[in-house]
C-alpha cells in the first residue's frame, strides 16, 4: 500500500527560518490531497520535502512502509510535475517522457511502449517527435504529466501545475488531472494557492498558514466548518464575512449595541468573538430582522454581490440575480446554521 505518512515533519532553513512547523498527517492509498495556502505558507516546502528536493530537519516521512528521509529523490518512486513544466528543451516529447526510464536502465523497447501508452492516454501521440517549444502551454503540461505517468510511481506530486495556463485551459486540465489520477489510482499530493482548484480536485484539503496546518478535511468540511478565521476567509469566494461581536455564553451573540442574534449554544467561551457568515448563506427577505445598508452591487451574471454595511461593519451578500432594483436599507434573514463563531483572539472555531 502506498500511503504517505508524515510524522512531526519540520523544516528549518539554515538562516533560522522555520518554514514548516512540525506537521503530521497521513494520506491513504489512492487519495488526492491538496495543500493550499497563501504564498510563503510552506506548502511548496512540504511538497519538496516529500519529493526529496529539500532535506527534512526533523520528523519522519514514509512512503508506503518505507522511511524515506534519506532516500534519493530518484529512488523514492515518486513523480513530480512542476509549475513551469521543467521539460528538457532540447529533447523531443518522447525523449522527455522516457528520460527517467532510460536512467533506470530499462530496455529501449519497453521505454518506447510505455511512452506510447502514456502519449495515447494524454492525446499526445502525434506530438512525440516535437520539441517542447513547438507545443502549446496545455500540451506542455500534458507532456509533464506524461513524464510522471511513465514512471508508474507510487506517488504523484504536483507543484502548482496549472498556474501558467489561462483560465479556460486551467478548468479543462483540472478535470483531466483529476480523472487521470482517479483512473490510475495513484496517491497524489497537489499544491496550489487557488482555493477553487483545492475545492474541486481534492479528496481532502490541507490548509496551511505560516508554516502551520490550520485544518485538514474534506472540501465540504473545510467549507462548512472552517476551523479558524484564516480558513474561513481563505476558502470560499467571495470570502466569509467576519464581524467582531461578543458572545454572552447562553445563546445570543451581540453585534454592536442594538443587534443580538440567537445561536446554537455549543460554545464554552464568552466574550469577544468573531462572527462568520458566508455571503451565499444569507437571504434577502422582507421578514428578515437584520438591517443591511447597501452601498454597491457587483453583477456576476448568475448572481450578484451586494456590498454594504451590517451593524457598521463591511458585509457582502451573494444574492440571486433577478432584475429587481435594490437600494437603501434591506432586510436580511440570517439562519442559525449560517453563523460561525470564532475565538476573538486565537481565531479558532468555537
Amino acid at each position: 500500500m502506498s500511503k504517505v505518512t508524515l510524522d512531526r515533519v519540520r523544516k528549518v532553513y539554515p538562516n533560522g527560518v522555520e518554514a514548516v512547523r512540525p506537521s503530521s498527517f497521513e494520506i491513504p492509498h489512492g487519495e488526492l490531497v491538496v495543500m493550499v495556502g497563501p504564498s510563503g505558507c510552506g506548502k511548496s516546502t512540504l511538497l519538496r520535502m516529500v519529493a526529496g528536493l529539500e532535506d527534512i530537519t526533523d520528523g519522519t516521512l514514509s512512503i508506503g512502509d518505507r522511511v524515506v528521509n534519506d532516500v534519493d529523490p530518484a529512488d523514492r518512486n515518486i513523480a513530480m510535475v512542476f509549475q513551469n513544466y521543467a521539460l528538457y528543451p532540447h529533447m523531443t516529447v518522447a525523449k522527455n517522457m522516457g528520460y527517467g526510464l532510460k536512467n533506470r536502465g530499462l530496455p529501449k523497447a519497453e521505454i518506447d511502449a510505455k511512452v506510447r501508452e502514456a502519449a495515447r492516454m494524454l492525446n499526445l501521440s502525434e506530438y512525440l517527435d516535437r520539441r517542447p517549444s513547438q507545443l502549446s502551454g496545455g500540451q506542455r503540461q500534458r507532456v509533464a504529466m506524461g513524464r510522471a505517468i511513465v514512471r508508474s510511481p507510487e506517488l504523484f506530486l504536483f507543484d502548482e501545475p496549472l498556474s501558467n495556463l489561462d483560465a479556460k485551459l486551467r478548468n479543462q486540465m483540472r478535470i483531466e488531472i483529476r480523472s487521470l489520477q482517479r483512473r490510475l489510482g495513484v496517491t497524489a499530493m497537489y499544491v496550489t494557492h487557488d482555493q477553487v482548484e483545492a475545492m474541486t480536485m481534492a479528496d481532502r484539503i490541507i490548509v496551511l498558514n505560516a508554516g502551520q496546518i490550520e485544518q485538514i478535511g474534506k472540501p465540504s468540511e473545510i467549507y462548512n466548518r472552517p476551523a479558524s478565521t484564516f480558513v474561513a476567509s481563505f476558502m470560499g469566494a467571495p470570502p466569509m464575512n467576519l464581524l467582531p461581536a461578543s458572545y454572552n455564553g447562553n445563546g445570543h451573540v451581540a453585534l454592536g449595541d442594538d443587534l443580538a442574534l440567537p445561536i446554537q449554544a455549543d460554545a464554552d467561551h464568552a466574550g469577544e468573538v468573531q462572527l462568520g457568515i458566508r455571503p451565499e448563506e444569507v437571504h434577502l427577505s422582507d421578514k428578515g430582522k437584520t438591517p443591511f445598508q447597501l452601498d454597491l452591487i457587483e453583477e456576476l451574471g448568475a448572481s450578484r454581490l451586494l456590498h454594504g454595511k451590517l451593524a457598521g461593519h463591511e458585509f457582502t451578500v451573494n444574492a440571486p440575480n433577478d432584475d429587481a432594483p435594490l437600494e437603501g436599507t434591506l432586510m436580511l434573514d440570517l439562519p442559525q446554521h449560517a453563523l460561525h463563531l470564532f475565538h476573538g483572539e486565537t481565531g479558532r472555531r468555537l
Partner: peptide, 26 residues
C-alpha cells in the same frame, strides 16, 4: 531554471548525467 535540475534529479540523473545529457546540449 532550477526546476530542470530538480526534474532530472527525480528522473535519476546524477551530476555526470545531468552535465552530459542536459547541460551540454543546452
Amino acid at each position: 531554471p532550477e526546476e530542470l535540475v530538480e526534474a532530472s534529479r527525480i528522473d535519476g540523473a546524477g551530476p555526470v548525467k545531468f552535465f552530459i545529457d542536459i547541460l551540454i546540449p543546452l
